[in-house]
Simulated scan of single mutants.
Amino acid sequence: MIDDVVEHQIRRHIEFPGIGDHPDLGITQTIARSESSGLTELLQHPSITGKTKNWTTTYKKYPTSSFYDGANYNTGTTEARVGYESTIGGLSRSFFRLAWTSSIKGATVTEADLRLYETYSWSCSAREMRVWRTGGISSSTTWNNQPSWTKEIGRKSFANGWSSSCPDAYVVYDGKSVAQDAADGGWTNFTIGLRASTEDSSYSWKKFKAEGESAPKIVITYNRKPAEPTKLDIPPGTCWSLAAIPLMTGTPDVKATATWGGSATTVIGGGWENKMALG
């Protein structure tokens, strides 16, 4: 279905050759679309994916140690840790920098799914974890040097990865708010932080895939307000005159070129219905 904003723009600007809106004759013009028409689908609500570019886990037990991109954790790791692990008495929080290449500045975000792949939980008993937007991370990020916890994105209870009763699985948070912040600010990356809501319980212990295709990502679906349409035209049909005013009969085509997101698309309304009422 063509975007309502584009339809409004075309409806507002199109004029019949030689007529226009003529209040004295009580002429009204309505360009209505037909669901069965072959009208070009213009706005597809595209999406972009912000993928993990860098990540780190911080450990309270090792307050000055950096585990940036999994380094220094034994021989290295590809899993991020969150919560309290009672075996070693370690409390952890993890951070991910998500980035994309194309700016969505000025766009309206219609949906954004923040996807995390959990590979381990302490049991199949769900426990709550919170996701925040944070400040940036680097190889200097440690427990004693954590980024700012700027804005909470959401909280959710879940447990995956303990056994076949609750196997590894994706967990999805609503990231629409932070994605809109990115669009408003013209960002092409931001950092998220994961922390357990109850940091003194071993049941809060979780692991997440931190590298590869299953690493955290945000899928952002967005839209942009199109520019006013140009090249508005109604290909000629049969005309006749009433008091020297040319009128068009039949069912003409309507076409216009709408520019959206830097791309121009010609909308051809072969199935559009033109209704004229003479008062």
Rank of each mutant, 00 (worst) to 15 (best):
Ala159Tyr: 03
Glu199Thr: 13
Lys156His: 07
Arg155Glu: 10
Arg195Leu: 11
Gly186Ser: 09
Asp113Leu: 09
Cys124Phe: 08
Asp181Ala: 12
Phe158Ala: 07
Tyr117Ser: 10
Arg127Val: 04
Ser164Arg: 11
Asn145Gln: 09
Glu128Phe: 07
Ser121Gln: 04
Cys166Thr: 11
Ala179Ile: 01
Leu116Met: 15
Asp113Trp: 04
Val171Ala: 10
Asn145Ile: 10
Lys156Asp: 11
Thr191Ile: 08
Phe190Cys: 00
Val131Lys: 02
Gly193His: 07
Thr150Glu: 14
Met129Cys: 14
Gly135Arg: 07
Gly136Trp: 03
Thr142Val: 06
Cys124Tyr: 08
Thr142Phe: 01
Ala179Ser: 14
Ser177Phe: 00
Ser148Arg: 06
Gln180Ser: 01
Asn144Met: 06
Thr198Leu: 05
Gly186Leu: 07
Ala182Gln: 01
Arg130Cys: 11
Ala183Tyr: 01
Ser139Gln: 12
Pro167Gln: 06
Trp132Ile: 03
Asp174Ala: 14
Thr188Ala: 04
Val172Cys: 09
Arg155Pro: 00
Arg115Ala: 10
Gly193Tyr: 01
Thr142His: 06
Lys151Glu: 12
Gly186Trp: 04
Cys166Tyr: 07
Val172Gly: 08
Trp122Tyr: 15
Ala183Asp: 09
Ser138Tyr: 02
Ser177Gln: 14
Ala126Leu: 01
Thr119Lys: 12
Ser202Lys: 02
Tyr120Lys: 15
Trp143Glu: 05
Leu194Val: 10
Tyr117Asn: 12
Lys176Ala: 08
Ser202Phe: 09
Ala182Gly: 07
Ser140Val: 08
Val172Asp: 08
Asp168Asn: 15
Thr141Pro: 02
Ala179Tyr: 05
Cys166Gln: 08
Asn160Met: 08
Asp184Pro: 00
Cys124Ala: 14
Tyr120Asn: 14
Asn144Arg: 04
Ser202His: 10
Trp132Leu: 10
Arg155Leu: 02
